[in-house]
Design a protein around this nucleic acid. Structure first.
Length: 236
DNA sequence: TTGTGTTTTACGACCTCC
DNA sequence: GGAGGTCGTAAAACACAA
């Protein structure tokens, strides 16, 4: 039985059965698959189990060499004009229709891969934004706590000053704790914010703050790689 | 060995461009 | 109108875990 019979078609030229090898840059599973297939077709155990033998003649795998040739051509130019298609088909022993179909499918795979990469990038950006938001919210909470404590302190000192005033002393005591500026928060928060605009680091959150805490929008979990990425972009 | 998930090949429907 | 594009899908080929 000759090779063409085994393929169930007349497109395939004998020379394309000769060599083995994998296309450049192909994924590991695909390479493994092709290796196993090559072993079966070529110098394997010779048990006569050939690729796709007896199957649907319209559904046959291309050889490694054919795929490699098509890949090379695809890398040069993703679109396929008639002349190139015919030439490539003749060169690889394929039907021009097969070449056209292969290019269509290859473009689809390429597009899908690009979309996947784009999605991955956006997801990382989204995760980083969530993390950023979380830290900002933590900062707000911390500042609110400090504000409350300071206001409490002011009230306490005021009441103390009031009792002193009632006992005949002057009214400068409140100014001594920074209230004269009219802003109770001016004694602590503005300086901190100016030093750390936007997202702040350890000065605000403190060295013990956990980067993994409080990410409700992300189901309470953020991967460490996100933190790394976040750091890479200078946000931490 | 078999069930299952993934990849590859092929096709039809529809769209765009010349 | 024909050639070639995308998109969606079917089905064969294949890998791999159980």
């Amino acid at each position: 039985m000759d090779k063409q019979h085994l393929f169930g078609c007349s497109y395939v030229d004998a020379p394309f059965f000769a060599a083995t090898g994998t296309a450049q840059g192909e994924s590991r599973p695909r390479a493994r698959r092709r290796r196993r297939r090559a072993a079966r077709c070529g110098g394997g155990d010779g048990d006569g189990v050939e690729m796709d033998g007896g199957g649907d003649p319209k559904k046959r795998r291309l050889t490694d060499e054919q795929v490699e040739g098509l890949e090379l051509s695809f890398r040069e130019e993703r679109k396929l004009e008639t002349g190139r298609k015919v030439h490539l088909a003749a060169e690889l022993g394929l039907d021009p229709k097969q070449v056209a179909v292969w290019f269509q499918n290859r473009r689809a795979r390429h597009k899908s891969k690009l979309l996947e990469e784009e999605f991955s990038k956006l997801k990382h950006a989204h995760d980083a934004a969530i993390l950023h938001k979380c830290h900002l919210e933590n900062e707000v909470l911390r500042l609110k706590e400090r504000l409350g404590a300071t206001e409490e302190e002011v009230r306490r000192l005021r009441s103390g000053a009031g009792s002193q005033a009632a006992s005949g002393d002057g009214g400068d005591a409140a100014g001594a704790v920074g209230l004269c500026g009219g802003s109770p928060s001016s004694s602590f928060s503005t300086g901190t914010c100016q030093q750390h605009p936007g997202f702040s680091g350890a000065d605000v959150l403190g060295p013990d703050d956990d980067l993994m805490m409080c990410v409700p929008e992300y189901g309470g979990y953020v991967d460490s790689s996100v933190v790394e990425w976040f750091s890479l972009y200078g946000l931490i």
